[in-house]
Computed example of a mutant assay.
Amino acid sequence: MIKKLLVYMPALNEEETIKGVLNSIPSIIDGFTSIELLVVNDGSDDKTEEEAKKAGATVITHLQNRGVGTAFQSAVDYALKTKADVMVSIDADGQFDISQIETMISPILEKKADFSIGNRFWDTKPHKMPKIKFIGNKQMSRIISFISKVKIFDASCGFRAYSRNCLLNLNLQGSFTYTHETILDLLHKGYRVSQIPVTVKYFEGRVSRVANNLFVYGFQTSKIIFKSFKDYRPLPFFLTIAFIVFMLALLMAGFVFVNWFNTGMVTPYKSLGFIALALFGMSLLISVLAFLADMLNRIRENQEKILFLTKKKYFEED
């Protein structure tokens, strides 16, 4: 049986490194009869596209920078159209050890996992990784672990591997990045993850293409996680908000009641009482919204199952 591996790299102005990284990828890997290299050139203004083609890679070019999330979706679409059985994503700057590709895909070939993600923090903080970036990544991983209910050690690592079924079932919304949303989406749908210890090199003076501004990166990824939490766990999400509003109303009402009990008058806190009453009503409405969102989430899950079967039929017959 023919099994195809697609090795994908997002690239933005990587002319200095991309050819060397592509040339270092082995042409033969156990378990596959075909290996294709794919570069999604995300709005580069240097010779990234030319260098990638010299190395024998297929290149998809975005005329302007659209973000690694959109680049990843372009790669997923290409993988499905070309009937890839497994897709590996790896950075184009040479940070990761190419020889670990086989380790990354091994759990998928052995049917022990459906997708694999690299774990840069398996031993300690990677050498030369900025401390603030290390702390930010660890905190983000804790949030992803909390939402997914699976312990994730490195939610932001771009070195990963996906089975074809995972690619068919991915429906992502974020264009800025894909790393966190992908984990949440696949785990929510019951796919098994394997977390592989990987080695990584950080270069002096190099600025990350995604996290070059940690505040922007934190804001953008927080938005994606916030939306994912709302979509995948709407009942606890909205009920938590309702509870907070209810407690705030209870505190205000309690304060007014104590004043009335001591003085026999609501004045001068009458307005506070009306605000408390409004907050009680708001908490009730949000509670109703929580159950409506939970019902809509079940409808969405059924629609995604239908979409998975439709995509599977479409790409198999294409």
Rank of each mutant, 00 (worst) to 15 (best):
T70W: 09
G174F: 08
F291Q: 12
N302W: 12
Q64M: 11
P126A: 03
F96G: 06
S283R: 12
E301G: 12
S99M: 08
K227L: 07
K227F: 02
D231Y: 14
V256N: 01
E317V: 07
P197N: 08
Q303F: 07
K19M: 06
Y191H: 15
T82C: 06
K138Y: 08
F246M: 13
K189C: 11
Q173R: 15
S145C: 08
L5N: 02
Y8M: 04
I241Q: 12
K125T: 07
Y191I: 11
I117F: 08
F121E: 03
D42W: 06
Y162Q: 05
D294I: 03
P268N: 06
D114E: 03
K311V: 03
L172I: 05
P197S: 09
L239K: 09
T17G: 01
G67E: 12
L38M: 09
T240R: 12
F134G: 02
E14H: 07
K3G: 02
D294W: 04
V216H: 06
L63N: 15
F238I: 00
F72P: 03
D154L: 03
Y232S: 06
I25Y: 05
I286M: 05
F243L: 14
V68I: 15
Y8C: 03
K54H: 06
I35F: 05
K19D: 05
L186V: 13
I299Q: 08
I35T: 10
Y232P: 04
Y191Q: 13
L167T: 01
K54C: 10
Y314N: 13
E301T: 14
K312C: 04
Q95F: 08
I117H: 02
Y232L: 12
F215H: 11
I275H: 09
D42K: 13
F215L: 11
T199K: 14
I18G: 04
D123Y: 14
Y217W: 15
S175C: 11
F176C: 10
V76F: 02
F291H: 13
I135Q: 11
I117R: 00
I135T: 15
G281K: 04
C157I: 01
L109G: 05
Y314W: 08
P130K: 01
Y78A: 04
L250Q: 15
A84F: 04
N65D: 00
I244Q: 15
I35W: 03
V258N: 00
K3V: 04
P126Q: 00
L289I: 11
M9Q: 03
F215V: 14
Y178Q: 02
A242M: 14
L167H: 01
N23M: 09
D77L: 14
P10K: 10
Y191D: 14
I306S: 11
A71N: 00
T240G: 13
T199R: 12
K149L: 12
I225P: 07
C157R: 01
F261D: 06
G218I: 02
K131N: 09
D318Y: 14
G264C: 06
F219S: 10
